[in-house]
């Protein structure tokens, strides 16, 4: 049906009732219908990764999924990382290592790195660089992002 559909999305452990057209992407739904604007859109064709969120624990491009596909999935966005006002170790590490400048790519990188490290707590350097090459950053030159993720990996293992 092209008509709007009522959906229930589970985002960051909270249930969101939304009414969206089938063509509305997950990214637009999170941003415009759930009000979770921390997930950003940088290209809308799956290259830049600014819209990366976790779906059932795995990093995905939310610009390449439709919201109607996501009922029943556990979705996590950048808004769900900090707990009780305490930054997630990945957020803390990005801060401490100057892993962001304008901050636009940051939510996507955070979700990519968190999603990956939760599955692979002790990645080797080559693997980590390959995974972090999934997303684009225009400001930092990546070096501090890599440092931050290395530090967070160690912190998350503790």
């Amino acid at each position: 049906m092209t008509e709007p559909i009522d959906l229930t999305l589970d985002v960051n452990g909270r249930s969101y009732q939304v009414r969206v057209e089938p063509r509305r992407t997950l990214a637009d739904t999170l941003r415009d219908d759930c009000g979770l604007t921390g997930t950003h859109l940088g290209c809308e064709h799956g290259v830049c990764g600014a819209c990366t969120v976790l779906a059932d624990g795995l990093p995905v491009r939310s610009c390449l999924m439709f919201a109607v596909q996501c009922e029943g999935m556990e979705l996590r966005t950048v808004e769900g990382l900090a707990e009780d006002g305490r930054l997630h170790p990945m957020q803390q590490a990005f801060w401490e290592n100057h892993g962001l400048q304008c901050g636009f790519c940051t939510p996507g990188f955070l979700m990519l790195a968190v999603g990956y490290l939760e599955q692979h707590p002790d990645p080797d350097e080559e693997e980590l660089r390959a995974v972090l090459s999934s997303n684009l950053c225009r400001c930092t030159g990546y070096q501090n992002i890599l440092k931050a993720v290395r530090q967070a990996a160690a912190d998350m293992r503790r």
Binding site: G46, G49, T52, L58, P59, V60, R61, L64, M65, L112, Y116, A130, V131, S133, S134, N135
Partner: peptide, 12 residues
């Protein structure tokens, strides 16, 4: 498989 796009692309 390692050459197919990037991790999030390979996941979907």
């Amino acid at each position: 498989a390692r050459h197919v796009g990037h991790l999030p692309i390979r996941i979907r």
